[in-house]
Design a protein around this nucleic acid. Sequence first.
DNA 1: AGATCCTATGCAACTCAGTTGCAAAGTTTA
DNA 2: TAAACTTTGCAACTGAGTTGCATAGGATCT
Lengths: 140, 140
Amino acid sequence: MNKQTTDVEEILQKKGVKPTAVRMNVLNFLLDQEKAVSLKDIESVLSRMDRSSIFRTLKSFEEHKLIHSIDDGTGMTKYAVCAEGCNCELEDLHYHFYCISCEKTFCLMDHPISTIELPKNFKMIHANMVIKGLCDKCNK
Amino acid sequence: MNKQTTDVEEILQKKGVKPTAVRMNVLNFLLDQEKAVSLKDIESVLSRMDRSSIFRTLKSFEEHKLIHSIDDGTGMTKYAVCAEGCNCELEDLHYHFYCISCEKTFCLMDHPISTIELPKNFKMIHANMVIKGLCDKCNK
DNA sequence: AGATCCTATGCAACTCAGTTGCAAAGTTTA
DNA sequence: TAAACTTTGCAACTGAGTTGCATAGGATCT
């Protein structure tokens, strides 16, 4: 399941982040997920690592456009690995889906944000779009 | 500028909220705004009133669909009065705009959320949509 | 009116995610 | 190797939100 260590190391190098043990572990974990995860999620799995180290790691990943953060309204910021070739620009933005039943937060990569009409002279720079409802597994 | 006391009282009655001093003051303040405001904003204006009273008032207003809350990513929930006839249903949802310069959060009432394509069997129940950028006054 | 009951309010204390300062450990550079 | 810089772990703090509890304010009943 895990990417080879060398893969993770390579990814970090490419994005200009020095590959340390903490960073490689965190990235490895993030790559394994099919959903966006919180700092707490990571903390409870990588329990040997310190919260603030993971926190700083996430901040660093975000700055280097390796991951993006999602404010899904739960009070815990979620993080997900960016898609190949993502620059965290407008065209990379996508909707997120928060399932109120299983409480998972997903990136809807196949449904990019369409051009949204804004009032005159308003300029869009970023967006945090969260749709809440039931995911396919919970919608029965 | 302020609505007449009787107006505010009437609005509260209609929505099934007993009109008390705190509630009338809070609603009055909310109606005066052209932007969404935080608990702190209200607290600093209605300084004689207790934070938790205002907090509970907002929760109550929200339950009674008098106002809706917006998580604009600043870490402070914002509140705005619902439009006439709003039932806080899907069709009442709208985008919000957070200006990263003046730090105001607006409801984009004229730009309702278009039907968003979801993966198969996903069901939308609610949404928190925040576009971030520059508002007309700050976009120069 | 007075007694009773229920709701609203104010205060203080607490929760919890996120964040920061600092010293120790690890790494790179000279 | 020593000096310089970076990363990590720990502990303490911040700030929004939330809750418990006692008092105050209204409504209701007798």
